[in-house]
């Protein structure tokens, strides 16, 4: 089976005036379809940078990132945007919902950007699975943190992305809501076969994944089966 995501000797160096700060230093990493992989590591080890590079939000300095066979390093900005639109979903630590839209609007806008119009069947399936049916007409400010993250989750998967990238999705949640959100990520993975890469520094959160890899100082240090 071909990996849905593959990085080869991936480097990302940030330049601040005359100082160069390498965030990624030759990362080699593979994710196969249907996997739920957690990338664990301390703050500043390059986890979030890896996620942004894998999601095509920024270009690597060196190396290759292959998403469903497409090398992001060779794509133009517009092509990476198109790939992101069709193949990648993001969930962020801070939810990042649009404050003026309702939960329904926040989910629907992802379908609108995707360009295939509103799919009521997919919408109903996802919102039911995430327990949002009764909260769709509320704005983010009227929702709890857990509900907001579930809306963000629904938005990320509504267009059936090949890859879901989650950046510390429970970082702003209490224990109970963290468990709910992580349970839903696992449910999405098991019931819909959603491939997920989750960044976290929390071992309890990492335990929900089928595989955990560790990062330190911009490199992968191992790959440990969680089960």
């Amino acid at each position: 089976m071909e990996p849905i995501l593959k990085t080869e000797n991936l480097w990302k160096v940030y330049r601040s005036s005359k100082v160069e700060v390498p965030a990624l230093r030759g990362v080699n990493f593979e994710v196969y379809p249907g996997e739920f992989v957690t990338v664990m590591g301390p703050s500043g080890c390059g986890k979030s940078t890896l996620l942004y590079v894998m999601g095509g939000l920024t270009q690597p300095t060196r190396g290759r990132v292959l998403v469903d066979g497409n090398d992001l390093a060779t794509l133009s900005d517009a092509e990476r945007t198109r790939l992101r639109r069709h193949k990648i979903g993001f969930v962020f630590q801070r939810f990042n919902l649009l404050p003026t839209l309702t939960a329904r609007g926040n989910i629907a806008i992802a379908q609108h950007i995707h360009g295939n119009g509103f799919d009521p069947h997919r919408f109903a399936t996802i919102t039911r699975m995430l327990g949002l049916t009764e909260r769709l007409h509320h704005r983010p400010a009227e929702l709890s943190g857990g509900e907001q993250q579930r809306v963000a989750l629904a938005r990320a998967v509504i267009h059936e992305p090949k890859l879901l990238l989650a950046d510390e999705p429970t970082g702003n949640l209490d224990t109970r809501n963290s468990e709910i959100v992580l349970g839903m990520l696992r449910q999405l993975n098991r019931e819909l076969g959603q491939t997920i890469v989750m960044i976290t520094h929390n071992p309890e959160a990492a335990a929900y994944a089928s595989r955990v890899v560790h990062m330190r100082d911009g490199v992968m240090v191992d790959g440990i089966p969680a089960d």
Binding site: G55, A78, R85, L98, A110, I113
Partner: peptide, 16 residues
Amino acid sequence: TREIGVLKSLGASKAY
């Protein structure tokens, strides 16, 4: 600004 970032992460083009 954050809203623009969110829309871009969702795949919104410059034209959008």
